[in-house]
Every structure is written in C-alpha cells, then in structure tokens.
Amino acid sequence: MSDREVKNLEEMFDAKIARDEKIEPKDWMPEKYRQTHIRQMSQHAHSEIVGMLPEGNWISRAPSLKRKVALLAKIQDEAGHGLYLYSATETLGISREELYEQLHSGKAKYSSIFNYPTLTWADMGAIGWLVDGAAIINQVPLCSTSFGPYARAMVRVCKEESFHQRQGFQIIMTLAEGSQEQKEMAQDALNRWWWPSLMMLGPLDAESIHTEQSMKWKLKRKSNDDLRQQFIDQTVPQAEMIGLTIPDPDLKWNEEKQSYDFGEMNWDEFWQVVKGHGPCNKERISARVNAWENGKWVRDAAMAYAEKQENKVVKQAI
C-alpha cells in the first residue's frame, strides 16, 4: 500500500470513530491503534488478575462467613473481568501465551496500586471503597470506547463492579462504627490507600504522554485530572459520613469551583512503584509466574486427555 492510500484509509478510520461508529477486530485499523489497544487492554486485564492477590490474602481470615463468601465472589469477578479483557485483547491478533509472557517478564504493566500490601481486614474495605471506586470512575467512560470488543467487555465489568464498591464501603462503615480499635483500623486503612488511589487515576495531565491520541480514539473520554477531581468530590462526603478523616491537610472545599482543592501527590513514590520498587512488586509477579509454571502439568494433562478422547471417536468412526 502506498503512503497516500494509507493516509486515505486513516482519514476514513478517524471519521468513522468521530461518527461514533465502532471498530471491530477484522476491520482495517492503523498499526498504532492496534498496538495501543493491545497495550492498554492487556494492562487492564493484568490489573484484574494481579488485583486478586492482595485480597486473596484475606479469604481465609475473613471475620465471618458472610464476609468470606462476599470476598470470594468479588475475587471471582476479578478473575472473570481479567478473562473478558484477555479474550477481547486476543481479537487484535495476540495470543494468550504472549500476553502472559509480557506480564511475567515485566514488559507489560499492571495497575501499580496492587503492589501495596494488605495489612489488616480494614484494607478489604478500603480496596473496595477506594480502589474499586476509582476504577469505576475510570471504567464507566470506556463502555463507549471505539473498539467494539473492549467496549462490550467494559459494559459487563461495570455492571459487576458496583457490588465490589458497596461491599467494601460496608466493611469500612462497620469498622468505623465499631470499637475504638476498629475505628482506628478503618482510619489507618484510609490513610494508607487514599494517596495511591488518587494516583491510580494516572499522571497529571501536564505529564501524561498518551492523553491526546487516546481522546481521539475514545480510549479516554475524560482527562486524568478530571477523573481525579470527580473521585475526590464523590469520596470526601462518604468519608465524612462515617466519621473518617481524609489524610490530606490541604483538602478544602472551594466554593467558587464547587469542588475540593487538595494537596500534592507524591509522584516520586508513584514512579518508584511503577518501576518495580513498590513493597510487593516481586511478590505479585512471582505469585503469577508460580501459578502459571506449577499449573503447566494440569494444562498438559487436560490437553492429553482431550486428544485421547478425540482419537477414540475417530477410531470408532473408522
């Protein structure tokens, strides 16, 4: 194809997205669109899968059977979300094995918030309330993104995500209404998860390299700063309602802009964690690698069994 033909195709492609038409896997797309989607969608899938680990830590120590079944169901949803997203990513021509390989080798990223440890039961509340809360804000606009399989997967994810946030808030609320010790536990969890949750919504707009192109492709519909402001404005009253304090001395209602002003985030820490130096980066990846490698004999055995069954059928047919 000549450069001119490619340019022509690209113009038609951009116009299609501008008209709110969806792009489906077998449609022509610019190579950069394909690569950007593989990167973002797989990163999203990896985040769901790695995101199971911090919570898995508390399944066996949940304080009641009710909490335990809810936590199990939530984690099972995350496995499901990972699978919806992996299969949507595979429609772009990359195999599941390649995707896992990128995660295991560190080539692909996942949300850095999952590199923080879950020290107390209150962290299960804070994760549902804050981390899933921030994720919902990030994900709702993606339900109308331009790539069809991603948009459809996100519709399913968003439908299921609201239970996650509600069960988390209820955990935190119950602790906040409990004994002095429980209340302190809830406050401690908020203190540790607040800033990482804010930074989870991505770098400042001024420093975000992908925003402009992603806006055009509807991979992003609001900027990181707007999403962050929305998250803060919605979460602060929730904390007040249950008598917890947001750990930000600069947090103040701004009457004029009808939203909160807030303090500076520690981006050095953020980038350290992204680069692999967070408290649990190594532990998370090694858990994934071990699961994959130690599960190999099971995958092989299942495949051997399937082939044996198939041969039997063929033999009978002869």
Partner: peptide, 19 residues
C-alpha cells in the same frame, strides 16, 4: 466472548463460570 479450554465439556463449564 471467548475463552480457552482443552475440550468442549471444559469450555461449557468455563463459560458457565466466566459468563
């Protein structure tokens, strides 16, 4: 959507759990 499974029976069970 889609999923990976070694045979049709497993695909059905996985589909039930995932979807």
């Amino acid at each position: 959507g889609s999923l990976h499974a070694s045979d049709a029976t497993m695909a059905l069970e996985n589909a039930r759990d995932v979807y």
